[in-house]
């Protein structure tokens, strides 16, 4: 009869934390789109200017609804990519919560997560540039902006994506060792 794993065993802690992360993934997937819509619907023009790497006073003409909708849709693209990544992370955490740590599927899902996060970072850079144009389109000629910015948050996001990709590769090595170990009785 296999010995039950004690609660203090590292695997039990991994399972417990994975269940919490799973819950966090669901909260993010449900909440972030709602917050995005709320943000674009209620934030004042000076506040929205930040989304396009603009100074608060850069949006001189009153913002029309179509501008908010278009800019919101553009910023929804990097969010959608991020949500795809979070979905992959959710699937991975489901496996970890079941105690299946060293699996090929977990490696693939983590790699996929890092790919989507990196894509979201690049898309965010592009989205902010497009947003700057949309938000200042009603400005008088000569005062419309195209602003491209790469911030520390983008750099950190790409670094994080790279880190997760590397961790996935390490788990892949662990999976090979686990498979080798299973063939010993």
């Amino acid at each position: 009869m296999p010995t039950p794993v004690p609660l203090s065993h590292p695997l039990q802690r991994i399972r417990k934390i994975s269940r919490l992360m799973l819950l966090a993934c669901w909260v993010m997937m449900l909440l972030l789109p709602v917050l995005l819509v709320f943000y674009w619907a209620t934030t004042s023009a000076p506040g929205l200017a930040r989304q396009g790497n603009l100074l608060p006073g850069a949006i001189q003409a009153p913002l029309e609804i179509w501008q908010r909708v278009v800019a919101g849709a553009v910023t929804a693209i990097p969010l959608a990519l991020l949500l795809l990544g979070i979905w992959q992370a959710k699937c991975c955490f489901e496996q970890f919560a079941n105690g299946d740590v060293f699996t090929a599927q977990a490696t693939r899902q983590l790699r996929s997560f890092s790919g989507w996060v990196a894509a979201a970072a690049f898309a965010a850079i592009l989205a902010s540039a497009i947003t700057s144009v949309v938000l200042t389109l009603n400005n008088p000629p000569g005062l419309r902006h195209l602003s491209v910015g790469i911030g520390s948050d983008h750099v950190f996001t790409l670094f994080f994506a790279g880190l997760v990709w590397l961790m996935a590769a390490v788990i892949g090595q662990g999976q090979m060792l686990a498979e080798e170990n299973e063939r010993f009785v």
Binding site: M1, P2, T3, E180, R183, F184, V185
Partner: peptide, 23 residues
Amino acid sequence: AEHVGITEANMSLLKQGKVKGIR
């Protein structure tokens, strides 16, 4: 298998010599 603490499937593999090694 029950005494040793391995599955019957692993015991069968061991008998057939199809395991990688034995602890």
